[in-house]
């Protein structure tokens, strides 16, 4: 269980040192509170995939070089592989599973199907989380902008032209 080091007191602030063994971590994911016992070194990605059975975010490189693990933390797209799960306590994590209500599809998900914006599908959750954020950020103005601001999500099947088409379709519907 939680190994707790001595509280450091400096200028009145007490810091709780947790780990290195498993510690209790509260994560809010897709609006649901989860309690996990994990080592501090566990990444958000591994917490989602191996502990919470939320396997939508993918592990493609574990090095911040492919974008397949893209999720939102407090509404911003980030890479779950380079985020330690513990740093997300007190923040809201959104994964592709939480993008739309149970049994429903977000319009970006529908557009990805309609434009055939994927083949193997492995990078797709990351692409979609990026694509929705892209439009909210205001970076979907034209194709050049979409290209640049979607370049953090590698699609090895190279569905890029179709991904852009899906994004355009959602953008233009808005």
């Amino acid at each position: 269980m939680s190994a707790r080091g001595p509280a450091l007191t400096e200028r009145g602030a007490a810091l709780e040192e947790r780990g290195p063994g498993p510690v209790r971590v509260r994560l809010s994911v897709n609006g649901t509170e989860h309690t996990l016992d994990i080592e501090p070194r566990v990444s958000l990605l591994d917490a989602l995939r191996e502990r919470l059975d939320l396997t939508g975010a993918k592990k493609g490189c574990d090095q911040g070089t492919c974008g397949a693990c893209t999720v939102w933390v407090d509404g911003r797209r980030v890479l779950a592989c380079l985020t330690l799960a513990m740093t997300c306590e007190g923040r809201e994590v959104t994964t592709v599973e939480g993008l739309a209500g149970e049994g429903e599809l977000h319009e970006m998900q529908r557009a990805f199907i309609a434009e055939d914006a994927f083949q193997c599908g492995f990078c797709t959750p990351g692409q979609i989380m990026s694509a929705v954020a892209l439009i909210e950020e205001g970076h979907a103005g034209n194709d050049a902008e979409i290209k640049e601001w979607m370049s953090g999500n590698i699609c090895r099947c190279a569905a890029y032209p179709h991904i852009r088409a899906a994004i355009r379709a959602v953008r233009d519907r808005a």
Binding site: G56, A57, E97, L105, Q109, F118, G121, T124
Partner: peptide, 16 residues
């Protein structure tokens, strides 16, 4: 035809 596995792939429910 739309891909028959489109929905599981875009929702993250496809299990690799």
């Amino acid at each position: 035809l739309d891909r028959v596995d489109g929905r599981p792939k875009v929702t993250g429910h496809a299990r690799y």
